[in-house]
Amino acid sequence: MLTIADQSFHSRLLLGSGKFSTPQLMQQAIKASGSQLVTLAIKRLELDKPRNDLLTPLRAMTIQLLPNTSGAKTAKEAIFAAELARDALQTNWLKLEIHPDPRYLMPDPIETLAAAEQLVKLGFVVLPYCSADPVLCKRLEQVGCAAVMPLGAAIGSNQGIQTRAMLEIIIEQATVPVIIDAGLGAPSHAAAAMELGAAAVLVNTAIAASQDPVAMAGAFAQAVSAGRIAYKAGLAATQAYAASSPLTDFLAAL
């Protein structure tokens, strides 16, 4: 079971709800993923455009909705977005993300730490998206974040785990769940993240932008489970040479 703050989840796969071609496809993919935590965003209402009822079908599913602060460029903007999201969804859970850079969407560590500290004081359960920086992750934990969400690679890049060495240190030191967010482009990347000892992973683009998002959601679910079981089982050590004692014995018997 994955436990974040006072909540437990069977699934260790968090799903982002963006980029699906239709709301129906998104719902089917959520179902196939088995995910119990699904992220949403908040933005200004465009009065001249019709609104889709996104929430009614999502509320009918047994999932927890996790609003994010995507679009915020500063701590101040993120806190404003957090307060709006809390009221809109009636949840104090929050995926904090602050990325002023529109090209790579790299999280701003200074603004993120400042916002996290404030938001914890305001009663939010804060899950910050952050760089794979062991010192930053420790600081986020110390100000009261319920988890840390370091990146595997740039958001939407599908490059897999480019930050492996740093993630290993973060996981070793963390006393809150480490959720690897961003950059996981294939089920094998998710499995690798879980084998490292991540508590969970968050996936969006790799599922939503695949040719068959529902099938891909199922593939990610299996990969996350397999990776977790492998981590618990303890991987055999890697070696520089091949040691095959049965073959040696066979030759000696001739």
Binding site: S17, T39, L40, A85
Partner: peptide, 27 residues
């Protein structure tokens, strides 16, 4: 931010700047 439970009480003032936000999909 004006909380939902206060929408019935909040008295609009001349020149108020009101901004509406909505939940949308996103990672």
């Amino acid at each position: 931010v004006i909380a939902k439970r206060l929408w019935h009480e909040y008295q609009l003032q001349n020149h108020d700047q009101i901004q509406l936000f909505q939940i949308v999909t996103g990672g």
